[in-house]
């Protein structure tokens, strides 16, 4: 068994598509119109055959209070791995991305948290080499 799909619930699929591809740099794997919404999945340039990220429309009423509570407490529900958090932070900051938490050294990992402009906080993390 393998992990095939993971998802983020987004306010606006087209806006999210732009942010996740143009700003974050993911590649579109599927973009299939299904009436009001689309089936959109993305992959990393570094792993085109890897786990796909679904941009899920935020249609369900339960999504609203759930995401509000997460964002209020600063909880990122989704995390992406990067080689260098500090470099990625500088790159995204220059592109106007708003960080809730700048790069923070937590011992075994370095993490940072940003706002994806579509209703979610996203964590980027770098695992430090163990001595």
């Amino acid at each position: 068994m393998r992990i095939h799909l993971s998802g983020v619930v987004v306010d606006d699929q087209q806006k999210a598509l732009r942010f996740y591809t143009e700003t974050l740099g993911f590649r579109v794997k599927h973009n299939i119109p299904l009436g009001e919404h689309s089936w959109i999945t993305l992959v990393s340039e570094e792993a085109p055959e890897g786990t796909q990220l679904v941009l899920e429309p935020a249609g369900h009423p339960a999504v609203v209070p759930f995401r509000k509570a997460l964002v209020e407490d600063g909880i990122p529900y989704t995390a992406f791995a990067v080689d260098d958090v500090e470099a990625e932070y500088e790159r995204l900051l220059a592109m106007g991305v708003r960080f809730v938490q700048p790069p923070t050294d937590l011992g075994t990992v370095v993490t940072a948290v940003f706002d994806d402009t579509c209703g979610n906080l996203i964590q980027i993390m770098e695992e430090k080499a163990q001595p």
């Binding site: 407490d73 600063g74 909880i75 990122p76 809730v100 938490q101 700048p102 923070t104 937590l106 011992g107 075994t108 990992v109 993490t111 948290v113």
Partner: peptide, 17 residues
């Protein structure tokens, strides 16, 4: 150490550090 932290960041620091 850093002003302006969310509950999540504080919890992460308390656990990890």
């Amino acid at each position: 150490d850093r002003s302006g932290q969310s509950l999540f960041e504080l919890c992460s620091r308390l656990t990890m550090k």
